[in-house]
């Protein structure tokens, strides 16, 4: 089965990004595909490469990057939401790309299920 994921909240502040990531990891482990994760609202803050958590904490941004690298998951950051919050190509971590809201709608159309994580 093909899953699409929507993440509406930023990292660390809220559990949404963790839940979404752990869901993706479990789905892939079961042989499903995660086609795209779309980051919207404050969720765009999951994509900044300047994120530096304390060493004993999980690195939420790098974890997403690795998921993209290992499993070809398309990590899309909403351009309008990103611009509002100062996220640009210059501060984007590996594996993320900035694109339009149409990518979210497309994920809804092309995925068997779209799962939303937020506050």
């Amino acid at each position: 089965m093909k899953f699409g994921i929507l993440v509406n909240e930023g990292p660390y502040q809220h559990e949404a990004s963790d839940s979404a990531y752990l869901f993706c990891k479990a789905a892939i482990a079961k042989g499903h595909t995660v086609g795209r994760v779309f980051f919207y609202h404050d969720g765009v803050n999951n994509s900044t490469k300047f994120t530096e958590p304390p060493q004993d904490d999980r690195h939420i941004v790098n974890r997403w990057s690795k998921l993209a690298e290992d499993h070809g998951v398309d990590l899309v950051v909403c351009v309008a939401a990103a611009m509002r919050r100062g996220i640009k190509d210059d501060n984007l971590a590996q594996g993320f790309r900035i694109s339009g809201l149409g990518q979210l709608v497309e994920a809804g159309i092309q995925s068997d299920r779209l799962v939303v994580f937020g506050d």
């Binding site: 990891k25 479990a26 789905a27 994580f117």
Partner: peptide
């Protein structure tokens, strides 16, 4: 667990958060 979460999403026709 998270695997069970995935199974629930797959088994239901649709989901709502």
């Amino acid at each position: 667990d998270y695997g069970g979460f995935v199974d629930l999403v797959a088994a239901n026709k649709n989901c709502q958060s």
